[in-house]
């Protein structure tokens, strides 16, 4: 359960997060400290205990499946770093 630099690189890739090379060793150490600390949960017997994801146990409300918002491309694109016509633009994905 030890996190080394390779693991840090793997998680960073999953999270799409660039970590400067000189920070990787430090990050590994900090994550290990945190994970060693949370490991105390292993003391707790949770057999027959259901996970609690939401304190309001009821299932979430549903609403009618109808369009109730939209038609505002200017608002949606207002903060876009780059856009063309009514589209967000990104670096080329397909060659």
């Amino acid at each position: 359960m030890t996190i080394d630099q390779t693991t840090v690189e793997r998680i960073a890739k999953l999270a799409r997060l660039e970590i400067p090379a000189e920070e990787k060793a430090g990050v590994a150490k900090e994550l290990n400290n945190i994970l060693n600390w949370v490991a105390q949960l292993n003391e707790v017997d949770v057999s027959n205990v259901e996970p609690l994801a939401n304190v309001n146990d009821k299932s979430l409300r549903a609403r009618a499946d109808v369009v109730n918002d939209g038609g505002k491309p200017e608002d949606i694109l207002a903060n876009a770093p780059s856009s063309t016509a009514d589209f967000f633009t990104v670096p080329k994905v397909v060659e």
Binding site: V8, I11, L14, A15, L17, P20, V27, L31, I34
Partner: peptide, 18 residues
């Protein structure tokens, strides 16, 4: 994301991803 997030936020994203 690397440049936009500060150290503590990056730490929590990595912990959460793990």
């Amino acid at each position: 994301r690397g440049e936009g997030f500060g150290k503590e936020v990056r730490r929590r994203i990595l912990t959460g991803t793990y």
